[in-house]
Amino acid sequence: MENYTFNSFTLQLEGLIVSKDSTYPMFLFLFFSYMFIMVTNVGIVFLVFIDKNLHQPMYLLFCNLPVNDVVGNSITVPRLLIDMLRPPSERLIGYYECVVQAFTAHMFGTTSHTVLMIMAFDRYVAICSPLRYAAIMTNKMVIKLTVSAWGVAFVLVGILLGLTIRLNRCRTLITNPFCDNASLFKLSCESVFINNVYGLTFTVVLLTSSIGSIVLTYAKITVVCLTSRNKSLNSKALKTCSTHLVLYLIMMFSGMSIVFLHRFPQYSDYRVLCTILFHIIPGSLNPVIYGVQSKEIRKFLSKLFESKKVSPSL
């Protein structure tokens, strides 16, 4: 008969299961990926902060993505790296620390959707109503959109974790590299029907809203571009929208892979890998893609490097 430990405040993380030969290569991959994410995302936010030419709604709204990437990866990746160097029996975590980690992990995924939704609204106004753009996208509107993106995610994820915290626990093993909601409510021996219903509703509402807003926005932008004979407008729309769409598709593909593989327990190893890559890939590519596509950011970086080349000769 299975031994149960009720409401233990010390949990054991399964961690990332890799062979001995793969431990250090995987550790180095994750470590350098994390450092790259931190440097590039913090760098983008710093550039937008110090350059007045970048104090535009598009860049200010985009700054939500690197902030989200930095926070989301800082909660999960360092802990994952530490656990990789520990034997499985020593991969322990406190219950409340586990809840915070799960909350942050779900906030990361949810905010990725809501931020890209408000960025889509910004592109829609800029291309479909260019003459009214300055009047609509004021500083107050940027603040409202930002607060809405984070506020909606906070409420949705807060309810998700709140329903899990109410459950009594009879197990202590988190069968995941890091804590998430599903791993937490699986520790309970009580009925988790409400958790499953809300989790499914949460996912459907978020994805429907996200996909629906992106499709509707880009459909209207496409109509404007097709009916307009302004080549400069079409070129601008193609550059800014292609960047935003690439970011969205990367995030959607990574997230949907996890949801899909959750339905097939026999592919748990692939699900674990996708869960980790969901944090690593978007966080690594977002600043690179946006930085390469952004004319203003390229200008700032070229000026910065030119000044560094000139200064030694002075």
Rank of each mutant, 00 (worst) to 15 (best):
P282L: 07
P282V: 05
G283I: 01
Q266M: 13
I280L: 15
R298G: 13
Q266R: 12
I289F: 15
K299H: 08
D269E: 10
L273P: 03
S284R: 00
K299I: 02
R298W: 00
V292T: 03
D269A: 12
I297F: 01
V288R: 07
V288L: 15
P265Q: 06
L285V: 06
V292N: 07
I289G: 06
L277Y: 08
V288D: 03
R271A: 05
P287Q: 05
K295T: 12
I276F: 02
F300S: 07
V292M: 10
Y270H: 08
S294F: 05
V272P: 00
I289E: 09
S284G: 06
L273Q: 09
P287F: 05
T275Q: 11
C274F: 14
I297N: 04
V288I: 15
Q293I: 02
G291N: 04
H279W: 13
Q293W: 13
P282H: 08
S294Q: 05
I280T: 14
G291D: 03
R298K: 12
I281D: 03
C274K: 09
Q266A: 14
P265Y: 09
H279G: 11
V292A: 10
I281V: 15
V292L: 14
I280N: 11
D269M: 12
V292W: 07
G283D: 02
V292K: 10
I289A: 10
S284F: 04
Q266G: 15
I280V: 15
L285R: 02
H279E: 11
S284M: 12
Y267Q: 12
S294C: 13
Q266T: 13
Y270E: 06
I289L: 15
I289M: 12
L273Y: 09
Y267S: 13
R298T: 02
Y290D: 03
F278E: 04
V272A: 12
F300R: 08
V288Q: 07
S268T: 05
R298E: 00
L301E: 01
I289S: 09
S294R: 02
P287C: 08
I281E: 03
L273S: 11
I276P: 02
N286D: 14
N286K: 10
K295W: 09
E296H: 04
V288H: 06
I281M: 10
S268E: 11
S284D: 01
D269L: 10
S268K: 11
P287A: 05
Q266S: 15
S294T: 03
R298Y: 01
L273R: 06
Y267W: 10
N286V: 04
S294A: 09
Y267A: 14
R298I: 00
F300P: 01
G291I: 01
R298D: 00
F278D: 04
